[in-house]
């Protein structure tokens, strides 16, 4: 069982990222949002922690170390998207283009600010879970306090 995880887990990250990208890109059109995308990526990462141990998992992916900053950035991006409206006299959480205005499409990706919001959400959720997993893994696997 654990050997299966050991083999599969490190290889899950790629597909998970692609899945997440798909979920965000198709945006409003179908099931799933930034949150689910984030959790999917985070779960894949969590499996790496389980299989490799926290130290190895982090050494193999140094970018993880940036998780707290990414989380903060994600939150601030989402918040900025939400409160951009009041800057130009619109209510908070006004998304642009506004209701009824036409939208530029790039494939299925619609260029609307809601997507930016979703992206911030995704970044935050992924990173926040990573931080949480990092700490729990250290604790469970006896990392230095």
């Amino acid at each position: 069982m654990s050997s299966i995880i050991g083999v599969v887990a490190p290889r899950l990250l790629g597909p998970a990222l692609i899945l997440a990208a798909a979920i965000i890109v198709k945006g409003y059109a179908d099931v799933g949002d930034g949150f689910s995308a984030g959790v999917i990526v985070a779960t894949a990462l969590a499996l790496r922690y389980v299989s490799l141990g926290w130290e190895l998992a982090e050494r193999s992916l140094p970018v993880l170390r940036r998780a707290p900053q990414v989380a903060t950035a994600g939150l601030l991006i989402a918040l900025a998207t939400g409160f951009a409206g009041p800057l130009v006299g619109d209510p908070p959480f006004t998304h642009y283009p506004r209701a009824g205005e036409s939208v530029i499409h790039i494939g299925t990706l619609e260029l609307i600010t809601a997507v930016v919001f979703d992206l911030g959400l995704f970044l935050f959720v992924t990173a926040a879970f990573v931080v949480l997993i990092h700490h729990l893994a250290r604790l469970a696997q006896g990392g230095p306090r």
Partner: peptide, 21 residues
């Protein structure tokens, strides 16, 4: 309306920034 947004936004944005430092 701006004041209302500001009252919510100020502590929110600052709070997010502050927990990170």
């Amino acid at each position: 309306m701006t004041l209302l947004s500001l009252a919510i936004l100020i502590p929110w944005a600052a709070g997010i920034a502050l927990v990170a430092v």
